[in-house]
Design a protein around this nucleic acid. Structure first.
Lengths: 202, 202
DNA sequence: AATCTTTTGTTAAACGATCATTTAATTAAA
DNA sequence: TTTAATTAAATGATCGTTTAACAAAAGATT
């Protein structure tokens, strides 16, 4: 008895949001994408709200997995490489899919009026910040590490947000170039020596 | 015959979005905030969509005015001061109001599925970028100016987006400190001499 | 093995609520 | 007297959810 319906409905939710937006993604439309009856949403998720919350959890987990996987392939002592892994995970191809981007943005604005979603999103934001701060504290004073972590986090979200509005989507390569450039200018000159050669051009 | 209803309804729209979110802001709720009949929305805006578009135009104009006003009080030759003016305008107190922030975010996610709103938001994004690029080109090579402008724009949007999710709201002072720090590290050493003393601590 | 019973998964249909918009009437202004 | 502003009420559509019934699978009893 493998649970086939739940992931099926979550996928259908993202498809619907990608195509129609959250506002117009009724249970009728979502269930049509999944090829099932609308009533089944209540059976498995207790209602539409439960489905939306599960969908958001799924998106958050995908992001978390992408970051964790890249961190796992990184030398634990190479601070620059680890920060690049975190950044790269946030611009992973799975996160750039148009349906995922639209789902993210829809939940972001929805979260402000929905305590359950608000908590989820906030935990996610704090985790990114603490990941970054943890690495930066190895090469910067604590206060400065916090400051730079906020800068990097803002760059990630800002580039992502602006890219969501760009017809061509997010330019992952440019995004990482901007953030790497920021990072290099914030690190003390000695810190970069332990990492890979980071300067790319010019 | 001063047009009293239109601004009244636009204000009511932002109040409703701030309190209930865009999804639950029906014409009934909005008109209740304005103390008028729901039917009047169609009379003045041709429908709910027209009201939403007018509301977004209003928000965009307020931002544009805040930036323009600050630029007007700035020495045309002081590049650093002018960029700080642009940044400061984006973190003007009128833009930090909770209802405005929620309205912004609601429209941002709505824009992806609404061509009229999409165009408005995109024009706004491009204008910020070109303002920044114009100033930066006076102290940096064109290609580099474009690069840094994208960084500053991303920082503005990213800090603003993250602040929207923070219980305490946006920390305007910290926001400007992060961006100023970024700017200083991007400018050639000579360029900062024309501006005010910018280094704050440490 | 075969039949009966129970549980589980699924749906069609109906429900009341709410949605944006239109119509027709009323009030106020010109 | 005409025009403009405003509304109450009605309209049809769509919303999320519930109910009751059906189909399929699993277990239990002969």
């Amino acid at each position: 008895m493998p649970e086939i319906r739940k992931p099926q409905l979550i996928k259908a939710t993202m498809q619907a949001i990608g195509a129609y937006g959250l506002q117009k993604s009724s249970v009728a439309i979502i269930s049509r994408y999944a090829g099932v009856s609308p009533a089944i949403i209540n059976h498995y998720f207790g209602g539409k709200d439960g489905l939306l919350e599960a969908t958001m959890r799924s998106v958050l987990r995908d992001l978390s997995d992408a970051v964790r996987e890249r961190l796992g392939e990184t030398d634990p002592n190479d601070v620059v490489a680890r920060i690049k892994a975190i950044v790269g995970g946030n611009f992973d191809s799975t996160q750039l899919d148009s349906r995922v981007v639209k789902t993210w943005l829809a939940f972001w604005s929805q979260a402000m009026h929905h305590p359950a979603l608000f908590r989820l999103q906030r935990v996610n934001e704090q985790r990114l910040l603490s990941h970054l701060r943890l690495e930066l504290k190895r090469v910067l004073p604590a206060e400065r590490a916090q400051f730079v972590a906020q800068g990097i986090a803002a760059l990630i979200d800002g580039i992502w947000l602006r890219g969501a509005l760009t017809p061509g989507g997010i330019n992952s390569e440019l995004a990482q170039r901007i953030i790497t450039d920021y990072l290099e200018r914030q690190l003390p000159p000695t810190a970069t020596l332990t990492g890979l050669p980071t300067r790319t051009a010019r």
